[in-house]
Every structure is written in structure tokens, then in C-alpha cells.
Amino acid sequence: MRSFFTLLAILVFTISPTGKANAKPTLTIYTYDSFTADWGPGPSIKKAFEQTCNCNLKWVAIADGVALLNRLKLEGSSTKADIVLGLDTNLVVEAKATNLFEPADITVPSSKISRHWSDKTFIAYDYAPFAVIWDREKMKNPPTSLQQLVDGPAEQKIILQDPRTSTPGLGFLIWMKTVYGDKAEAAWQKLSKRILTVTPGWSEAYSLFTKGEAPMVLSYVTSPAYHMIAEKTDRYAATEFAEGHYLQIEVAGLVKSGKNKPLARKFLQFMVSPAFQDHIPTKNWMFPAGNTDKPLPKEFGKLISPQKLHLRDPKTVAKNRKSWIAEWLRATSK
């Protein structure tokens, strides 16, 4: 028994984060875990910022955007976070309701998405419209509108994510609602015969898709760029939908209880600058929300750029989310 506790103690001391005595201030940023992965933008951004700030940047990785918000709710004002990076716009109403954030108070250069998003508290750092990605080896004529997706043949299936557990799933639910309004329930009923399955998160859906289980999956306009750049294949593509595409915008906010707000503001300003934005396209596989120094890789030029983009007011989403999910359940769980 004692030897176990000794082992435990050793373990706790060896792999727990050690707070080294250090004169430099530390900036703690909560984000989702794929952001901080070795191949993600986290490590290079940390390096770039630390070169300019005379500080330590500490990433705290939490599963995903939703878990991030929940972590914050659990911690309340005792949170260690100076900045939370990685919420999506559908979460900002709830994030504001926690009263844990304050306006960032920085100057945001105008960009492609400024007209869709200009919040004082939550600053956009990247975005991508959702899109149906299809597999050239598995189908010939992909749908070119949401209508065609809904009405298309039942043999050609799509894999979706559950709006109760994942942000792309929620995004697609709002997309359907935005296009179909009152007729959304009927549309879901029709679509349900084309749904192969509804997975808990994006990873499960996309893995099934690349495994060849279905010719279509809900993902992002930017997804084909990964396959073109990293795998040198144009097997997977997106087509533009006539009704327009729903936008996912990822944002970051300044935490009110943070110990070092000037430094946190400096980071947010850095976040919208090229030194940060340059790492977004090929490491987070999203469109940079601000200007970059390097031009986007040429493969990004082959991606579709939807003319019409939708983004519902977060307040509307927060108010109706539950009833929309109930409607979706009624229509698809028959």
C-alpha cells in the first residue's frame, strides 16, 4: 500500500505541470486540444509570441470548444485562464452569460468576415463555411444545393454529426433551419433516409467517411485543402450549394479575472496579425480571419468560395437551440 502511494507521489511530481520560479510573466490560454498538437498551430504561435513578449505562453488544452466553455463554467472566477481561444459563435451568448469575459479593447483589422462578425468581446481568429464533402471515387453527381441533398437518392448516404454533442452538428442544424424555416422538420424527415449515421463528433464522422463508408460527410469548405496538400490527392471535394453556406467562426475572448490583462491584450492584438494568422491555413486547416504575410497555398485557390454565407445571430441560436433540436429529434428518430 505504502509503495503504491510513493509511486503515486513520484508520478504526480514527475508529470504534473511544474511551476518553475521564473521572473517572466506567464500568459495562460485555454484552447481545444487539436490546436496545441505538435502538428497544430499552437507550438509555432507560442514560439512567435514569446519572441516578442518576454513572457511564457502556456497552452491549456481541453477537448473542444464546448468542453472549453464548460470548464470555464465549472471554474468560475477562480479560473487560471487569461484568454479563452476556440469558442464558436454559437457559444458566445452562453459565454457572455457567465460574466467571466470583458471587452478585448483592441483594433481588429477589417477582413473578409468583418461584415458577418464584429463583436467587441469575442474576436474572430479563423473561419470556414461548412460544406458537404464528397468522394470522387464513390459518386459522380454531387448535390449542388441543400434541396438536392434533401431530395437525392437514398442509396447515396451522408454522415452527419449529432447537434447535441458537436459544433459542426449544431452548425448543420442551424443551416437547415435557416434555409427551410418552418419546413425544416419535413426536410429533415426527407433527408433522414439519406443519413448513414449521426456520430457524436466530427472525428468519428470524418473517419467513417475516409474509410469509404459513405460518399458524403458534413465538414468544412477547407477540408479538401488538407487532402490536396498533405496527401496530394483531389479525391475529396466540396461543391457550392445554391442556398449558401453556414459559417463557423472561431473566436477568442479576454477573461475578466486574468492576472495580466495588458499582456493578454497584447496577445489578442498579435492574434489578428500576420505572425499568428500565417499558421492558420495549413495547421488549423481553416481560413485566416486576419491578414497574412505569406500568400495562401495555391491549393486553397482550388477551394470553392461560396458567394452567399449565413450566420444567425447567436442570441437567436441560444434561444431556439433546444426547440430546434427537439424538432430534429422528432423528424429523424422515427
Binding site: 464546448v66 468542453a67 466553455l69 464548460n70 463554467k73 452562453e94 449529432d162 447535441r164 454533442t165 449544431l170 433522414s192 443519413i195 448513414l196 449515421t197 449521426v198 456520430t199 457524436p200 468519428e204 467513417l208 437551440r321 433546444k322 430534429w328 429529434l329 429523424t332 428518430s333 422515427k334
Partner: peptide
């Protein structure tokens, strides 16, 4: 159950618990 179940008709109580702590908190 969620991944292979084919839609929200195949859901377990565990999913409902998970949901109530995630989006709904």
C-alpha cells in the same frame, strides 16, 4: 451506439447524460 446506430433513434441514456452536461450544462 451513436456511430453505428444510424441516427438519433439509436441513443442510450449515457448520451442523454453527456448531452445534459455538454451543451446544456
Amino acid at each position: 451506439v451513436l456511430t453505428l446506430g444510424g441516427g438519433p433513434a439509436s441513443t442510450t441514456l449515457e448520451v442523454a447524460i453527456y448531452q445534459s452536461l455538454r451543451f446544456d450544462f
